[in-house]
Nucleic acid binder design. Structure first.
Lengths: 319, 319
DNA sequence: ATTTTGGATGTTACCGATAACATTATTTTG
DNA sequence: CAAAATAATGTTATCGGTAACATCCAAAAT
């Protein structure tokens, strides 16, 4: 591998000049810069990351920590990682996947943490290095997330516009911030339209929502739409309605939230709130690098506006 | 952070002795070793990875490349990564997630590649660094994988023992090695029992297997079991049978292959071939590090014996 | 007793980059 | 036009380790 020195010799300048061309180009004359660029291209120079890390007393490693049990996880996190990795790669940082278990092994320059529950915040607050959290929180940590409230508001609104008369919210039985926000979007829409909210909560498993809908089937007249806080819950509702002989989307609607993977096993596809996960991952990476490189304490949070992914579980137009 | 030097001073020896205690302990007397260990503990010494990397002309980075389109991917890879990362962490290596797109950015010491199709092998063959592939192949590359053939053999055998008379294989329409192996396991069992094999192939989407079963429902008498090459295909078959009024597992059986995630949205849970994915990831990592550290060209391949995960889509005992 | 040998430890140079300082060339200023 | 300020480039020391070589000293061989 070509080194700074090789470039310097070829361009007939000192190492320092080459280093400056890279890090402080404004301090080098254009003539020399051209020479150096030329030489770099000629021998395909790539800086040695380890040497850089050594002088800067950094590691160029970012730890990505998923606190949630990964077995129960959707490919969500994979896409998120792709996004983070993409942002980091561009700056020659590398991403290290850790769990609670091996969190402390080895050093790093910063963290992206996700899957946090309320109990985790105390622990995370003790981290000394720059940090970005994926997933909204109300503890003052910088985060990146989808605008959860806007998502359920939008999709509830869509259901209403398409003529469903009764909107039932099937939420996740967890006291986490994102769940509150999703419920809040639903509640706001119902309030604005002076409708009566109905919220039911279950653990995030399709068979629980399925059982609920089946068990209460006689109470659900046509023109009911189930606004679900996750695609899993939506999938359960969809299956329940079909097994009870309800017609989707003609008489019954179902909406989900996530829009990543489950849709590939649902039929008809669920109309859902789709999140730009790769982009959010990139945002996590960019924000974190920004904090690291500019020694900023807090960079603020970022909400991505969600989009609705049209499936076949909401009718095309009002009857 | 404490350095070698700090330890040396505290133990009243030279840097070199400390370094030797770490890398060539047999060359240091026990007395000194004790002193050094004591000092290391006292100031909580952790070697600086960047400095190590610099002298060894290494990066301590392993690239993990998923060639398959990740959007269509199950959480499979997430678990695999956890395993790889676990193995690498123990040796202070870090894992970098790359795609084809950013594959060439930055240096590394070795690769774990997965999701390879036949066309990819030429390209992969050109890689200069140590390599381990996740997923069986017939091109001579070292790999780690589940014993696919044994998996379908075992589960087909189970279906037979539980009294299903007709075993239909629903495979993936791909000419990849793992698919051939899964079919081979099925074929072998049928041959040994002098039964007539029936193989149908579809792209790996649940609605395709679903449609197939629905469309041909009148041809499937009770006591038929569908041996599927993936959980997705199994899920489709399961839904089809239910929608046609078939009874699972009493009259119809369904088996899958993978056993990671889909089971969380299937009801009843699919009886499937379960793979030890985290362990396989660790094996990938360990083998790769072994190749790197011992400068071995080929370390041979490794097959993990699969296990059957009992769900509710195969009956408990023969009728 | 003296030389030889070999094991244990220390010294030095180096990996590839950068910051801080030193030097040189150029421009500005009194 | 000389002195001072400024800009452009080079030199040196350093980050935290390790390999290669140098030194030292006790045991073995002569």
């Amino acid at each position: 591998m070509a080194t700074l020195n090789d470039v310097a010799k070829l361009a007939n300048v000192s190492k320092m000049t080459v280093s400056r061309v890279i890090n402080h180009p404004e301090k080098v004359t254009d003539d020399l810069k051209q020479l150096v660029y030329q030489a770099m291209r000629e021998i395909d120079y790539h800086p040695n990351v380890a040497a850089k890390a050594l002088v800067n007393n950094s590691t160029r490693i970012i730890k990505f920590c998923v606190l949630e049990d990964i077995d129960t996880t959707e490919p969500y996190y994979m896409n998120l990682m792709i996004g983070i990795a993409r942002a980091l790669d561009a700056q020659q940082y590398s991403l290290q996947l850790v769990t609670r278990r091996n969190f402390d092994i080895g050093n790093c320059d910063g963290y992206v943490v996700t899957g946090m529950r309320k109990d985790d915040f105390e622990w995370v607050g003790k981290l000394k290095k720059p940090l970005v959290i994926f997933g909204e929180n109300r503890f003052g940590f910088d985060y990146v997330d989808t605008n959860n409230k806007a998502g359920t508001f939008m999709i509830s609104n869509l259901a209403l516009k398409r003529g469903y008369k009764r909107l039932i919210f099937i939420g996740m039985d967890s006291r986490e911030s994102f769940e509150y926000s999703r419920e809040a979007g639903y509640l706001q829409l119902l309030q604005e339209n002076q409708m009566l909210p109905e919220i039911h909560r279950f653990d995030n498993h399709s068979h629980l929502s399925q059982k609920f809908v089946v068990d209460n089937w006689d109470k659900f007249e046509p023109d009911t739409c189930f606004i679900c806080a996750s695609d899993r819950l939506a999938l359960g509702a969809e299956r329940a309605i079909e097994s009870c002989g309800g017609l989707i989307p003609k008489d019954y609607g179902v909406t989900g939230f996530d829009g990543v993977f489950l849709n590939q096993v649902a039929f008809p596809q669920i109309t859902t709130v789709k999140q730009a996960i790769v982009e959010m991952g990139m945002a996590c990476g960019d924000r974190l690098l920004d904090k690291i490189m500019n020694h900023v304490d807090s960079a603020g949070s970022l909400m991505f506006e969600p989009q609705i992914s049209m499936g076949g579980t909401i009718r095309d137009a009002a009857k």
